[in-house]
Protein backbone atom coordinates (compact mmCIF):
# COMPACT_ATOMS: atom_id res chain seq x y z
CA UNK A 1 0.00 0.00 0.00
CA UNK A 2 1.06 3.55 -0.75
CA UNK A 3 1.78 5.99 2.04
CA UNK A 4 -0.42 8.97 1.34
CA UNK A 5 0.39 11.05 4.40
CA UNK A 6 3.33 11.32 6.75
CA UNK A 7 2.96 13.35 9.91
CA UNK A 8 6.43 13.76 11.36
CA UNK A 9 6.83 14.89 14.94
CA UNK A 10 4.61 17.90 14.70
CA UNK A 11 4.21 20.19 17.66
CA UNK A 12 2.09 23.26 17.88
CA UNK A 13 2.13 25.91 20.53
CA UNK A 14 0.58 29.32 20.95
CA UNK A 15 1.64 32.29 22.99
CA UNK A 16 -0.52 32.97 25.98
CA UNK A 17 -0.70 35.96 28.28
CA UNK A 18 -0.99 35.08 31.92
CA UNK A 19 -1.83 37.70 34.49
CA UNK A 20 -0.43 36.50 37.82
CA UNK A 21 -1.65 39.74 39.38
CA UNK A 22 -3.34 42.92 38.21
CA UNK A 23 -0.18 44.71 37.05
CA UNK A 24 2.20 42.04 35.76
CA UNK A 25 1.67 40.23 32.46
CA UNK A 26 3.66 37.09 31.82
CA UNK A 27 3.90 35.51 28.40
CA UNK A 28 4.11 31.77 28.21
CA UNK A 29 3.76 29.23 25.43
CA UNK A 30 0.91 26.79 25.61
CA UNK A 31 1.50 23.49 23.87
CA UNK A 32 -1.54 22.30 21.92
CA UNK A 33 0.10 19.37 20.12
CA UNK A 34 3.17 17.47 21.27
CA UNK A 35 5.28 15.48 18.79
CA UNK A 36 2.49 13.90 16.81
CA UNK A 37 3.81 11.11 14.63
CA UNK A 38 1.83 8.85 12.31
CA UNK A 39 1.43 7.66 8.71
CA UNK A 40 -1.69 7.12 6.70
CA UNK A 41 -1.85 4.55 3.92
CA UNK A 42 -4.04 4.96 0.86
CA UNK A 43 -7.58 3.68 1.23
CA UNK A 44 -7.60 3.72 5.00
CA UNK A 45 -10.11 5.47 7.20
CA UNK A 46 -8.47 6.84 10.31
CA UNK A 47 -10.48 8.02 13.29
CA UNK A 48 -9.18 10.56 15.78
CA UNK A 49 -10.85 10.67 19.15
CA UNK A 50 -10.14 12.92 22.11
CA UNK A 51 -11.80 15.21 24.60
CA UNK A 52 -12.59 18.78 23.67
CA UNK A 53 -9.42 20.79 23.95
CA UNK A 54 -7.22 17.81 23.16
CA UNK A 55 -6.05 19.42 19.90
CA UNK A 56 -8.16 17.49 17.37
CA UNK A 57 -9.21 20.41 15.22
CA UNK A 58 -5.73 21.95 15.37
CA UNK A 59 -4.30 18.71 14.04
CA UNK A 60 -6.85 18.66 11.21
CA UNK A 61 -5.95 22.22 10.27
CA UNK A 62 -2.22 21.44 10.24
CA UNK A 63 -2.66 18.37 8.04
CA UNK A 64 -4.77 20.30 5.55
CA UNK A 65 -2.21 23.11 5.48
CA UNK A 66 -4.41 25.83 6.96
CA UNK A 67 -1.96 26.45 9.77
CA UNK A 68 1.73 25.65 10.00
CA UNK A 69 3.10 23.50 12.82
CA UNK A 70 5.59 25.11 15.21
CA UNK A 71 7.84 22.11 14.72
CA UNK A 72 7.88 19.02 12.53
CA UNK A 73 6.53 18.47 9.05
CA UNK A 74 3.60 17.06 7.13
CA UNK A 75 4.37 15.25 3.88
CA UNK A 76 1.53 14.65 1.50
CA UNK A 77 2.24 12.15 -1.20
CA UNK A 78 -0.36 13.13 -3.79
CA UNK A 79 0.33 14.33 -7.35
CA UNK A 80 -0.53 17.96 -8.03
CA UNK A 81 -3.88 18.65 -9.61
CA UNK A 82 -3.62 22.34 -10.49
CA UNK A 83 -5.11 25.05 -8.32
CA UNK A 84 -7.52 22.78 -6.51
CA UNK A 85 -6.03 20.99 -3.52
CA UNK A 86 -6.49 17.25 -3.25
CA UNK A 87 -6.59 17.44 0.49
CA UNK A 88 -10.00 18.72 1.47
CA UNK A 89 -11.54 19.37 4.84
CA UNK A 90 -15.20 19.30 5.83
CA UNK A 91 -15.54 21.64 8.77
CA UNK A 92 -17.82 21.23 11.75
CA UNK A 93 -21.34 21.86 10.65
CA UNK A 94 -22.49 25.42 11.15
CA UNK A 95 -23.98 28.19 9.06
CA UNK A 96 -20.55 29.25 7.73
CA UNK A 97 -19.90 25.95 6.00
CA UNK A 98 -21.38 27.14 2.67
CA UNK A 99 -21.62 30.66 1.28
CA UNK A 100 -25.07 31.83 2.41
CA UNK A 101 -25.56 34.11 -0.58
CA UNK A 102 -24.49 31.83 -3.42
CA UNK A 103 -26.49 29.21 -5.21
CA UNK A 104 -25.31 25.75 -4.26
CA UNK A 105 -25.21 24.46 -7.84
CA UNK A 106 -23.10 27.41 -8.95
CA UNK A 107 -20.54 26.99 -6.23
CA UNK A 108 -20.03 23.35 -7.16
CA UNK A 109 -19.80 24.18 -10.86
CA UNK A 110 -17.06 26.68 -10.13
CA UNK A 111 -14.83 23.93 -8.77
CA UNK A 112 -15.50 21.75 -11.82
CA UNK A 113 -14.69 24.66 -14.13
CA UNK A 114 -11.32 25.35 -12.47
CA UNK A 115 -10.42 21.67 -12.48
CA UNK A 116 -11.20 21.43 -16.19
CA UNK A 117 -9.16 24.51 -17.05
CA UNK A 118 -6.11 23.32 -15.10
CA UNK A 119 -6.13 19.71 -16.20
CA UNK A 120 -7.94 19.88 -19.53
CA UNK A 121 -9.98 16.84 -18.60
CA UNK A 122 -13.61 16.36 -17.75
CA UNK A 123 -14.24 15.71 -14.05
CA UNK A 124 -17.40 14.34 -12.53
CA UNK A 125 -20.70 15.77 -13.65
CA UNK A 126 -22.66 17.91 -11.25
CA UNK A 127 -25.48 15.34 -11.25
CA UNK A 128 -23.11 12.61 -10.23
CA UNK A 129 -21.73 14.70 -7.36
CA UNK A 130 -25.09 15.63 -5.93
CA UNK A 131 -26.33 12.07 -6.26
CA UNK A 132 -23.30 10.82 -4.41
CA UNK A 133 -24.19 12.91 -1.36
CA UNK A 134 -27.99 12.46 -1.66
CA UNK A 135 -28.63 16.12 -2.38
CA UNK A 136 -32.00 16.47 -4.15
CA UNK A 137 -32.12 18.26 -7.49
CA UNK A 138 -34.84 20.70 -6.43
CA UNK A 139 -32.38 22.29 -4.01
CA UNK A 140 -29.58 23.01 -6.51
CA UNK A 141 -30.81 26.52 -7.15
CA UNK A 142 -31.21 27.37 -3.48
CA UNK A 143 -28.81 29.69 -1.73
CA UNK A 144 -26.83 28.66 1.33
CA UNK A 145 -29.06 30.44 3.83
CA UNK A 146 -32.14 28.65 2.52
CA UNK A 147 -30.84 25.22 3.51
CA UNK A 148 -31.22 23.24 6.73
CA UNK A 149 -28.17 22.14 8.68
CA UNK A 150 -28.03 18.68 7.13
CA UNK A 151 -28.61 19.98 3.60
CA UNK A 152 -25.87 22.55 4.06
CA UNK A 153 -23.46 19.88 5.19
CA UNK A 154 -24.23 17.73 2.14
CA UNK A 155 -23.87 20.73 -0.18
CA UNK A 156 -20.47 21.51 1.35
CA UNK A 157 -19.49 17.87 0.88
CA UNK A 158 -20.52 17.90 -2.79
CA UNK A 159 -18.31 20.93 -3.40
CA UNK A 160 -15.40 19.23 -1.68
CA UNK A 161 -15.84 16.00 -3.64
CA UNK A 162 -15.88 18.03 -6.86
CA UNK A 163 -12.23 18.83 -6.18
CA UNK A 164 -11.47 15.10 -6.55
CA UNK A 165 -9.67 14.84 -3.24
CA UNK A 166 -7.45 11.93 -2.41
CA UNK A 167 -7.55 12.73 1.26
CA UNK A 168 -10.67 13.94 3.01
CA UNK A 169 -10.60 15.32 6.53
CA UNK A 170 -13.87 15.34 8.44
CA UNK A 171 -14.14 17.48 11.56
CA UNK A 172 -17.01 16.26 13.76
CA UNK A 173 -19.22 15.39 10.77
CA UNK A 174 -21.91 13.80 12.94
CA UNK A 175 -22.58 16.48 15.51
CA UNK A 176 -26.14 17.80 15.88
CA UNK A 177 -27.74 15.12 13.70
CA UNK A 178 -30.46 12.63 14.43
CA UNK A 179 -29.63 8.91 14.21
CA UNK A 180 -31.06 8.62 10.69
CA UNK A 181 -28.95 11.37 9.17
CA UNK A 182 -25.90 10.11 11.03
CA UNK A 183 -26.49 6.73 9.45
CA UNK A 184 -26.94 8.29 6.00
CA UNK A 185 -23.71 10.27 6.30
CA UNK A 186 -21.91 7.17 7.43
CA UNK A 187 -23.05 5.40 4.24
CA UNK A 188 -21.93 8.35 2.09
CA UNK A 189 -18.45 8.37 3.61
CA UNK A 190 -18.10 4.62 3.14
CA UNK A 191 -19.17 4.98 -0.48
CA UNK A 192 -16.64 7.76 -1.11
CA UNK A 193 -13.94 5.58 0.36
CA UNK A 194 -14.84 2.50 -1.64
CA UNK A 195 -15.94 3.95 -4.98
CA UNK A 196 -13.71 7.01 -5.21
CA UNK A 197 -10.76 5.56 -3.33
CA UNK A 198 -10.64 8.54 -1.00
CA UNK A 199 -8.63 8.11 2.16
CA UNK A 200 -10.37 9.64 5.15
CA UNK A 201 -9.41 11.11 8.50
CA UNK A 202 -12.43 11.50 10.73
CA UNK A 203 -12.43 13.50 13.94
CA UNK A 204 -15.29 12.79 16.27
CA UNK A 205 -16.24 12.17 19.84
CA UNK A 206 -18.93 9.62 19.10
CA UNK A 207 -17.32 6.21 19.51
CA UNK A 208 -20.16 4.20 17.98
CA UNK A 209 -19.94 5.94 14.62
CA UNK A 210 -16.13 5.89 14.59
CA UNK A 211 -16.30 2.16 15.22
CA UNK A 212 -18.59 1.73 12.20
CA UNK A 213 -16.52 3.91 9.88
CA UNK A 214 -12.83 3.68 10.73
CA UNK A 215 -10.44 0.76 10.44
CA UNK A 216 -7.68 2.62 12.25
CA UNK A 217 -7.86 4.77 15.36
CA UNK A 218 -5.82 7.37 17.22
CA UNK A 219 -6.65 8.50 20.75
CA UNK A 220 -5.46 12.00 21.62
CA UNK A 221 -5.08 13.19 25.17
CA UNK A 222 -3.93 16.74 25.87
CA UNK A 223 -2.05 17.03 22.60
CA UNK A 224 -0.37 13.63 22.65
CA UNK A 225 -1.13 10.37 20.89
CA UNK A 226 -1.67 7.87 23.67
CA UNK A 227 -2.93 5.01 21.55
CA UNK A 228 -2.81 4.17 17.83
CA UNK A 229 -3.90 0.96 16.19
CA UNK A 230 -6.69 -1.06 14.66
CA UNK A 231 -10.08 0.24 15.78
CA UNK A 232 -11.35 -3.21 16.67
CA UNK A 233 -8.36 -3.90 18.86
CA UNK A 234 -8.54 -0.62 20.75
CA UNK A 235 -12.19 -1.18 21.48
CA UNK A 236 -11.77 -4.72 22.71
CA UNK A 237 -8.50 -4.29 24.61
CA UNK A 238 -7.63 -0.67 25.29
CA UNK A 239 -4.17 -0.36 26.84
CA UNK A 240 -4.10 3.21 28.17
CA UNK A 241 -6.13 4.11 31.27
CA UNK A 242 -7.42 7.22 29.52
CA UNK A 243 -8.78 5.14 26.63
CA UNK A 244 -10.58 2.93 29.13
CA UNK A 245 -11.96 6.05 30.75
CA UNK A 246 -13.17 7.43 27.39
CA UNK A 247 -14.85 4.14 26.46
CA UNK A 248 -16.72 4.12 29.72
CA UNK A 249 -17.55 7.82 29.39
CA UNK A 250 -19.03 7.12 25.99
CA UNK A 251 -21.54 4.74 27.54
CA UNK A 252 -22.38 7.42 30.13
CA UNK A 253 -21.56 4.95 32.88
CA UNK A 254 -19.03 6.96 34.86
CA UNK A 255 -19.53 7.33 38.57
CA UNK A 256 -18.87 10.61 40.37
CA UNK A 257 -15.65 9.18 41.77
CA UNK A 258 -14.32 8.23 38.34
CA UNK A 259 -15.12 11.71 37.07
CA UNK A 260 -13.24 13.24 39.96
CA UNK A 261 -10.20 11.11 39.18
CA UNK A 262 -10.30 12.27 35.56
CA UNK A 263 -10.45 15.93 36.46
CA UNK A 264 -7.42 15.39 38.68
CA UNK A 265 -5.64 13.59 35.86
CA UNK A 266 -6.31 16.46 33.51
CA UNK A 267 -4.69 18.77 36.03
CA UNK A 268 -1.65 16.48 36.00
CA UNK A 269 -2.08 15.36 39.55
CA UNK A 270 -0.59 11.99 40.32
CA UNK A 271 -3.06 9.31 41.26
CA UNK A 272 -1.58 6.03 42.46
CA UNK A 273 -2.57 3.06 40.36
CA UNK A 274 -4.31 5.10 37.69
CA UNK A 275 -1.82 7.62 36.45
CA UNK A 276 0.87 6.72 33.94
CA UNK A 277 3.08 9.50 35.17
CA UNK A 278 6.05 8.61 37.30
Amino acid sequence: MRKILEVKKISYSVQQKVKPNSTAVKKTRKEILKKINFDLYEGNILGIIGESGSGKTTLAKIISGIIKPTQGEVNINIPNNGRVSQVQILFQNNSDIVNPLRKVGGSVEEVLRILKKDNSKQGSSIEELFNLVNFPENLWQRRGYELSGGERQRAALARIIAAEPKLLILDEPFSAQDPESQYNFLQIFKKLNQEKRISIICIAHNFNLIKELCNELIILNSGKIIEHGETEKIFTSPSHPFTKFLLKANEYNLTKEELLVNSMLSKNEYIPGLSNKQ
Binding site: S52, A176, H205, F207, F245, N250, Y252, L254, L259, N262
Partner: peptide
Protein backbone atom coordinates in the same frame (compact mmCIF):
# COMPACT_ATOMS: atom_id res chain seq x y z
CA UNK B 1 -24.58 18.77 21.60
CA UNK B 2 -21.15 20.37 21.84
CA UNK B 3 -19.68 18.89 24.97
CA UNK B 4 -17.68 15.70 25.13
CA UNK B 5 -18.76 12.42 26.75
CA UNK B 6 -16.83 12.88 30.00
CA UNK B 7 -18.57 16.17 30.73
CA UNK B 8 -21.87 14.65 29.64
CA UNK B 9 -21.41 12.05 32.38
CA UNK B 10 -20.96 14.89 34.80
CA UNK B 11 -24.04 16.61 33.49
CA UNK B 12 -26.08 13.44 34.03
Amino acid sequence: SSIDPAITNLLI
